[in-house]
């Protein structure tokens, strides 16, 4: 079966995973006005950074999902042994992570922005930064999940390993919104995305080989 279709089918047949990501994000964003202040000026000031941090946490939380199951039922081993190039399969895995976590997040961004008192233009830049940045998070999360799959404390380990690598994305994305769309940050984010798209699936493929030989 085409691996891309397979991932889509898994996604459609277990919508609970996607819903869980969305609910997590909405609930955590809701906590901030309660904890800090409902004052719109304060909220709008921290909104970009806050949404990026929540997106990062949601990505890390969803990282293991598809890969853990594939490891447990032997599908991962078949992928490593199969004829399809491993980097392509790893790219598809990252794409699946983006479909189940990044895309829904992108869709509810206007809602989150409204909750945090952002105006229309800021929401637009938020959308732009998520559009370029969330795929990078997905690629890194897939790598982290491959590195830790099958380990005893793998799921606890994953955020520790991967969070430092997500810092550049976080900084560039947040700064892009806060600077009101300065193109420098956009270009840098796009450069980071292209670099990640071509290089990370290769590393993830190596990690997958290691995971099945463990």
């Amino acid at each position: 079966m085409n691996p891309l279709i397979r991932e889509c089918k898994i996604l459609v047949r277990s919508p609970a995973d996607t819903v869980q990501s969305v609910l997590f994000v909405v609930i955590v964003v809701m906590l901030f006005p309660l904890a800090i202040s409902p004052d719109p000026t304060i909220l709008a000031g921290i909104a970009a950074g806050l949404m990026w941090v929540v997106a990062l946490l949601a990505s890390l939380l969803a990282a293991e999902r598809g890969i853990q199951a594939d490891f447990a039922d032997g599908a991962l081993e078949q992928m490593v042994l199969g004829k399809t190039p491993l980097w392509l399969l790893c790219s598809i895995k990252a794409f699946a992570h983006w479909l189940s976590c990044g895309l829904p997040l992108l869709l509810i961004t206007p809602l989150l922005g409204t909750m945090l008192a952002l105006d229309g233009l800021e929401i637009f830049w938020m959308l732009a930064s998520f559009a370029l940045g969330l795929p990078i998070l997905s690629l890194f999360c897939t790598l982290g999940a491959m590195l830790t799959v099958g380990l005893d404390r793998g799921s606890a380990l994953l955020p520790l390993l991967i969070a430092p690598f997500l810092i550049p994305t976080l900084i560039l994305g947040t700064q892009w919104v806060q600077s009101g769309g300065q193109s420098f940050y956009g270009y840098m984010l796009a450069a980071l995305l292209s670099l990640s798209v071509v290089s990370l699936p290769l590393a993830t493929g190596v990690a997958a080989r290691i995971a099945v030989s463990r």
Binding site: P164, F165, P168, S199, A203, A207
Partner: peptide
Amino acid sequence: VLALVGLINLPVIKYS
């Protein structure tokens, strides 16, 4: 693998 990915990422992190 993680150490190597980190080495490639260090300049990116530093500049960002």
